[in-house]
Simulated scan of single mutants.
Amino acid sequence: MDIKGSIVLVTGGNRGLGKAFVQKLLEAGAKKVYVGSRTPIEATDPRLQPIKLDVTNEQDIAAVAEAAQDVNILINNAGIASSTSVLTEPSIQIARDIMETNYFGMLAMVRAFAPILKKNGGGTIVNVLSVLSWFTTPTTTSYAATKAAALLLTDGIRVELRSQGTQVVAVHVGFMDTDMATHVDPSRKVSPVDVATSVIEGVINGQEEVLADETSRYAKAALASDKKSFYQPIQADWDKAQQQI
């Protein structure tokens, strides 16, 4: 899908990777970018449309969907994390909060915008996942569980939305130089601008998966499985069922 002339909504667009997405989308020729964040940013660029959006708030999502009927690219970037063991976190509520944002928030956005994308010709959904969609460590289990759930969500909606022409892109990346990874050795982190650039190239090239850094490429190879072939019969069954409706 061409970025030039597109109208994009970026969740969590006020900082980190979200801010990098906004920057690179404008450079690629996006006509308008809705910048979703809990507290709307200030913007002087007429191409930017700051909008209040907490992906865990049903009222916010409904209001954004009503206001942004022209969107043809949705980038689900908003996310939160924890770096403590699930067995030693002060409360299980921490795990629930992460799941609420990283999985249910993404699901709610897809449900709200899939019909809008269909109306606007199909468009694209980009789901920012993680190398931790594939594996975990004791201190990342809550986060990894949400990203694994989000990966299966991404695979499922790709099958479901293919017939309406919606491109669904899964983005995998390790540590980025953002607030979420301030505790990580800088040598292990990749620039969010580089990640955003890779993702936009993937959208333009029609990719279903973007491995945005060396960490994700290494993990993919180490945990190799032929996912595309695995999903072929699922796709066939889905398409057959849709023809019978």
Rank of each mutant, 00 (worst) to 15 (best):
T84G: 11
G206A: 09
V168F: 08
I116H: 04
V86G: 08
V10K: 04
L17P: 01
V86T: 12
L17W: 05
F104I: 06
A236W: 09
P40D: 02
G36L: 09
G5C: 10
V184N: 11
L107F: 11
L151K: 10
E160M: 01
A65P: 02
I92N: 06
I80F: 08
I116Q: 00
S6V: 06
S187N: 13
E89A: 13
Q207A: 13
L26G: 01
D226R: 14
F21G: 02
V184A: 14
A95P: 03
S37T: 09
R15Y: 06
R158F: 05
P46H: 02
M99L: 15
D239V: 10
S216E: 01
D185K: 11
G5N: 08
T139G: 01
S91I: 10
P233L: 13
A65E: 14
K52I: 07
I61C: 00
V193H: 12
E42W: 08
A81Y: 06
T215Q: 15
E27Y: 04
F175D: 01
G206C: 11
E160Y: 03
D179C: 05
G105H: 10
Q244C: 02
T197Y: 11
S130T: 07
I75K: 05
T154Y: 07
K4I: 03
Y218S: 14
K32V: 12
Q164R: 09
P40Q: 06
Q167R: 13
S130Q: 02
D185R: 08
V110P: 06
Q69C: 01
I41C: 07
Q207L: 13
R15C: 05
T139Q: 06
N127F: 10
R111A: 10
A112N: 03
P192V: 10
E214A: 15
A108F: 04
A241G: 13
Q164V: 13
V159T: 12
E209F: 15
A62S: 08
L153F: 13
G202W: 14
Q167W: 13
I157A: 01
I92E: 05
S6E: 00
Q232E: 15
P192Y: 09
S37R: 09
M99H: 06
V184G: 10
P233Q: 12
W134D: 14
Q23P: 01
I75W: 03
P50F: 01
I75Y: 03
N72V: 12
R15A: 13
E58V: 10
